[in-house]
Nucleic acid binder design. Structure first.
Lengths: 229, 229
DNA sequence: ATTACTATCTCACGAGTAC
DNA sequence: TGTACTCGTGAGATAGTAA
């Protein structure tokens, strides 16, 4: 009982598409070859091998040949199909960051509680964040790369503003979950004093308190991603 | 822009299953090799080629290597997936017979209107069939083969019986549609005077009349099949 | 026109091994 | 441990051609 050869998948799928599951469908090796973008000879060989393995049956009526897929053939391609289905469907659709909490509640807290930001947070996030950002030092290179990737995804924009002293940059806001437990928002700032390896989080309440974590603790942050069509 | 090689499908699916769509996942070529039932070298080559084609990205952090699937990689495997999906889902699930109406309303009519049969038809089909069977001479070898295939599928059984003169065989009954228009039933008899190339149909009303067809007309009969799990 | 043989070529894979 | 090179083998594809 040989397994379905990987290169026969498209051939079998093509026969399926032509309706050959329950009925004998007339087909020539050259037309089949064109459909699978291979030569007539390759199509011929595919049919011979699929027949030898019991995945299809053929019937000659004089010059014409008809093909039908067997139950075994159906089972084999269904198997491949569900492997792909499971792979694609169970794939988590979030970007995850891992790192350690670092101190730095001071400065971020000041900016985030400015009226110009707070008003927008209330309007767009639905709450005024706890006055203070949670800063996380990313653990590995791949999380820094993930941050760049995230930057390319559409975000909720908090606009910059200015008072008579200075101007304040925009803030990109991504809904996130801390330790798969606490709802928060990962924020990317137009102007930050941190380097690439630090991310900042805001939340309704004090994250350190609600997670009972402190400076140095390892945490996970997940930002959900809508899978593209 | 090279197309995804067919033998890379399972490798890419495996990476997907490991969650490598949005996050860099640490992986070794030997473990990947085991997962795809190929050698470490083959896995290494797959990754190199997938990377060269822009379907995955790799990141080295010292000795460790992490892999992430790109949007392009996602698109490619989705393409393959939908080809299979469409092939499997649009596949019609009926066995079709084509042939010409032949005369022979006499004998079948007699048997089918016997009380022993008629009572069961009423109970199991919901109606007493028009007294007379429609006989169809199958056009090609594949339809005769299809008849054998149909015989292997479960059917509604009309039991045989006997009176004081003789015994009458069982009848297997398959719901069918004539010319995708009229509901009928294809019947397989334990004892028939026809050869393999003829099928018989019964219906509530006179099929010839309701289809406005006559002896010699080509017709199509479709018997729906439940796709196996 | 078909299908499928033989010969040839390419390339996928695995063994061995360098790093 | 890792990855990825070279090289040999054989499977898969095509060209040419027979039936």
């Amino acid at each position: 009982m040989p397994e379905l050869k990987i290169q026969h998948i498209l051939t079998l799928a093509e026969l399926f598409a032509k309706g050959a599951r329950y009925n004998f469908i007339p087909i020539t090796t050259s037309s089949l070859g064109k459909s699978i973008r291979k030569s007539q000879q390759a199509a011929s060989k595919h049919l011979l091998e699929l027949e030898a393995s019991g995945y299809i049956e053929r019937l000659r009526s004089g010059p014409k040949v008809s093909v039908r897929i067997t139950t075994r053939g159906h089972a084999e391609i269904s198997k491949i199909f569900s492997i792909l289905k499971v792979s694609l469907e169970t794939s988590p659709s979030y970007i995850e960051f891992k790192g350690a909490i670092i101190s730095g509640m001071g400065e971020g807290a000041y900016y985030m509680s400015l009226k110009g930001y707070a008003k927008q947070f209330k309007a767009k996030l639905g709450y005024v964040p706890f006055p203070g950002t949670l800063n996380v030092k990313l653990k590995d290179k791949e999380f820094i790369e993930a941050k760049r990737t995230l930057d390319a995804y559409p975000a909720m924009m908090i606009n910059g503003f200015s008072d008579d002293k200075r101007t304040y940059g925009w803030v990109k806001c991504y809904p996130a979950r801390v330790n798969n437990l606490i709802d928060a928002a990962l924020i990317l700032l137009e102007r930050t004093h941190h380097d690439d390896s630090v991310i900042e989080l805001i939340s309704k309440d004090n994250i350190k308190k609600s997670t009972k974590l402190s400076t140095g603790s390892q945490i996970s942050i997940r930002v959900p991603i809508k899978p593209s069509p």
